[in-house]
């Protein structure tokens, strides 16, 4: 599934024009990207949380040559799926969402 298919679904299910649907879907993902770039977390209840984490520098290894190299400190994005999403994937009853 791509963004185009999500737009198609919005168009079919919600009845907005394709142009409007596309505009909103783009804006949703752009807003999420801008927010995460600022280091702010995003919580989508029933789906999951997107969290920016700060990683310390660490020593890694080139797996081909065995050579040690320092991996610099960096900020990374992690996704923590909600209990609701995890249950949905396993055909389990939907738990009540607990605020984190």
């Amino acid at each position: 599934m791509t963004k185009a298919e999500i737009i198609e679904q919005i168009y079919e299910k919600v009845g907005f024009s394709k142009k409007e649907s596309a505009e909103i879907v783009e804006l949703v993902f752009d807003t999420m990207k801008d927010t995460l770039e600022k280091g702010e977390k995003i919580k989508i209840s029933g789906f999951g949380n997107f969290v920016v984490r700060q990683k310390r520098p660490r020593v890694g290894r080139n797996p081909q040559t065995g050579e040690e190299i320092e991996i610099s400190a960096r900020r990374v994005l992690t996704f923590r799926p909600s209990q609701v999403l995890k249950a949905a994937l396993n055909g389990e009853p939907i738990p009540h969402e607990v605020e984190e």
């Binding site: 963004k3 649907s21 949703v28 993902f29 989508i44 029933g46 789906f47 994005l77 994937l89």
Partner: peptide
């Protein structure tokens, strides 16, 4: 609000079917 909910519902449904979702530039 309806549209935002629909986006995440579509994504959940897709994953329920074992499918993959690719949003260019996002992940």
């Amino acid at each position: 609000e309806v549209i935002v909910n629909t986006i995440f519902d579509c994504m959940t449904e897709q994953l329920q079917h074992g499918g993959r979702i690719e949003i260019r530039g996002f992940g």
